[in-house]
Design a protein around this nucleic acid. Sequence first.
DNA 1: GGGTGCTTTTAGCAATTGCTAAAAAATCAA
DNA 2: TTGATTTTTTAGCAATTGCTAAAAGCACCC
Lengths: 186, 186
Amino acid sequence: MENFLNYLEHITPLSGSACTAIKRKLKKAEYPKNEVLIKELSRCEYLYFVEKGLARASYFKDGKDITDWFAPEGSIIGPVVRHFPTKEGQHSVTLLEDTTVIGISFADLQELYDEFHEIERLGRMIAIQTILLLQFKIDSIQFLTAKQRYAHFIKTQPSILQRASLGYIASYLGMNQVTLSRIRKS
Amino acid sequence: MENFLNYLEHITPLSGSACTAIKRKLKKAEYPKNEVLIKELSRCEYLYFVEKGLARASYFKDGKDITDWFAPEGSIIGPVVRHFPTKEGQHSVTLLEDTTVIGISFADLQELYDEFHEIERLGRMIAIQTILLLQFKIDSIQFLTAKQRYAHFIKTQPSILQRASLGYIASYLGMNQVTLSRIRKS
DNA sequence: GGGTGCTTTTAGCAATTGCTAAAAAATCAA
DNA sequence: TTGATTTTTTAGCAATTGCTAAAAGCACCC
């Protein structure tokens, strides 16, 4: 649980009582590789912190499996990153490795928001961080060539490189799998 | 001022005292067409609500002027939409028409956040809405062709079509000005 | 009313990337 | 180890879009 609390404290300082209240709501769970952690993201009742392992958020678009987020250890996943169902297709989260998550339900989170002003602030900060990430993604799709996007990915998420298949990475980077293979060779 | 408060109340309900506190901080101002409302977005001390008129957030990328947001009447602009300086270039906001804005300083906003839990919540909600908008933008860049993006723009922001030049719209849609002209003709 | 400057359109060419299909390589299970 | 399945690479072709440059259209100002 401490990992998650550290993660949160790193975003905004929390009082002892807020920490205790949060800790009471957390549930740890382990799942094996290939498990579907979240079937339908838009209806998911939990927010997860990945303590160990790797999760992958994805959906289907015109029959193709598109990855829109990788969540390795130390990151969060759930309807915070993709808060609303913006696509027709079903959004789900699958585990690429044996994974340990720490979950908190939205009902509990809402209670915490109501009770602690500082946790509401924490939620705001996390949303702002997400905005930052999305803006980076926009910049990357809009201005970088496929080759540059891959170079950037290698630099910023080298660990994922070894842990996810080329096809998953290609769709995450918004390019054809064949294109990524070509780029890799060059 | 009422327009802005209505806008806020539409996002999350506010108590009378919160409304009053906000109202005390607001400053209305009018600027003529072509005025630079914000010189450097990342250093901007104000959040603006556009009551009347049209603003355009933009920056330079490889010597080209890129539009990344249009803010017509009824929308907000300032470092909420683009909260951090994610690009080398200078981000600014310029007015495309004579415009009336209602501003609130970040110092005042911070005070309001500290004092009113419910305003903190409001901030969180606005951030979440922004996430939604950015996700739409990502989907649009990543999956739609230039032609489809333009079609979508016509459908969702028809008023801007008449009010911003083709070059501005092209860069907003992430395509060459020449390409947009071709698309328009077809 | 004519000139000046800005915006939009047109044309031709080049580069990137997508798509399909097939071969090669790697992984996994029996 | 062998066979089956999945993943990655390779090849060739097509389509979209970008770029440059020049022409046409429009608006504004003296």
